[in-house]
Nucleic acid binder design. Structure first.
Length: 115
DNA sequence: CGCCTGACCACGT
DNA sequence: CACGTGGCCAGGC
């Protein structure tokens, strides 16, 4: 690792997460892809679980289907849910519902929808 | 050095 | 929509 204490991959992932617009959510895989690390979704998850950075909008990161990664009722779930709502998003049944989180399955529907 | 686990993802049934 | 399977990478034991 470098002198900053984190690997380049980690830095890119953090940058990708910070790049998520307020009120929107991105899947782990999508974040990894944007960070230039396709297929490293698990790396993103592990990063958030171990080396969370202060000021990082981790609450904007959820599963590919728009669901919060934590089990309903957990502290993490509650925290993420509250933060998302504060940003204007809506959470129902552990699912993030913005104007469109109705993605059938793919992240494409979540990030690249035709107006 | 090998095995198990994990804030995951996609596909097929 | 639920379940099972394979793949991916990194860390802990």
């Amino acid at each position: 690792m470098d002198a900053s204490g984190s690997t380049d991959a980690a830095q890119r992932i953090f940058a990708a997460i910070r790049a998520i617009p307020v009120g929107e959510v991105a899947g782990y895989g999508e974040v990894a892809r944007r960070a230039g690390l396709p297929g490293r979704a698990r790396l993103v998850a592990r990063l958030l679980s171990t080396s969370l950075e202060p000021g990082l909008p981790w609450h904007r990161v959820c599963r590919s289907d728009g669901r919060i990664a934590f089990p309903q009722g957990s502290h993490g779930f509650d925290e993420q849910c509250a933060r998302l709502r504060r940003e204007g998003a809506t959470v129902v049944g552990g699912r993030v519902v913005g104007r469109r989180a109705r993605a059938a399955t793919l992240d494409e529907a979540l990030w690249g929808p035709p107006a």
